[in-house]
Amino acid sequence: MTPSARFATVATPPGPFTVVVTPGPDGGDVVLAAGWTGDVSDLLPVVHRALRPTWVERVEHLPVLDVVEAHAAGDVGAIDAVPVRQRSGPFLEDAWEVLRTVPAGQPDTYAEFAARCGRPAAIRAAANACARNAAALFIPCHRVLGSDGGLGGFRWGTPVKRWLLDHEAEHAPVPA
């Protein structure tokens, strides 16, 4: 278990966004969990039990919230370098890293994401990686759609997912 963590909330266009962080090895913050809620108790259960803090402190501001605000203002690449710590089995941990390679404005289907993970037949496992992601936005599981092109599910609701996809499509760099 992580002994302690800090959390803060910021307003975003689709609703309040809360992030839980812990100190990283370099002294900067590492995201343990994040999502569109004003209640930290919605986030703590999705943190792996080995990483779940025993105590969390509310703070007025965290530097990572500047990145969230930059993303909301149109800098959709601002989230790319934010350090995240999640734990699970090898496939899920690898899949979460692969999610960070899905470009803003160019969502994958679950089948394409499974192939991107090197396991094209593992479509359900790929969908499970999205469903079990504790660090929404920073691990952009919202960039994966149903195989029929529909939104599929999203822990924070399909209206939030639709806003994110539309926002990123509007502000993403045009592929070369």
Rank of each mutant, 00 (worst) to 15 (best):
A34E: 03
G89F: 02
G157V: 03
R162C: 07
P13M: 02
R124L: 14
P53I: 12
R155D: 05
L51N: 14
R116P: 06
E112F: 10
E93W: 05
L145A: 12
T2K: 13
A11Q: 11
H61P: 00
D39Q: 09
P14I: 01
F91H: 09
A70P: 00
G146S: 14
G28F: 00
G38Y: 01
M1P: 15
V21N: 09
G35E: 00
E57L: 14
G105E: 07
A114D: 06
D42F: 04
W55V: 14
R119C: 07
A78K: 04
G89D: 11
C130L: 10
L151D: 11
D42N: 06
V160T: 14
G153F: 08
A126M: 11
V47R: 09
R119W: 05
T22P: 12
P25M: 08
E69M: 06
W156A: 02
A34V: 05
V47S: 10
R87N: 14
P173L: 13
G152V: 06
A111C: 03
A78C: 01
I139C: 13
A134L: 03
P173S: 11
R52C: 11
G105A: 11
A50L: 13
P83S: 04
L65G: 00
V82R: 05
A95P: 01
P53G: 13
D29Q: 06
P83E: 04
A11M: 00
P63H: 00
N133H: 02
D42M: 03
H167N: 07
Y110S: 15
A114C: 01
A136D: 13
P13R: 03
N133M: 01
T54M: 15
G153T: 09
L145D: 05
H61M: 07
A134S: 11
C130T: 10
H61R: 05
T12I: 09
A115Q: 02
L51A: 12
A129R: 04
H71E: 07
G150Y: 08
A8L: 09
V30F: 02
T158S: 11
R100N: 03
G157H: 08
A172H: 03
T12K: 00
A104P: 02
T18S: 10
F154V: 07
W55S: 14
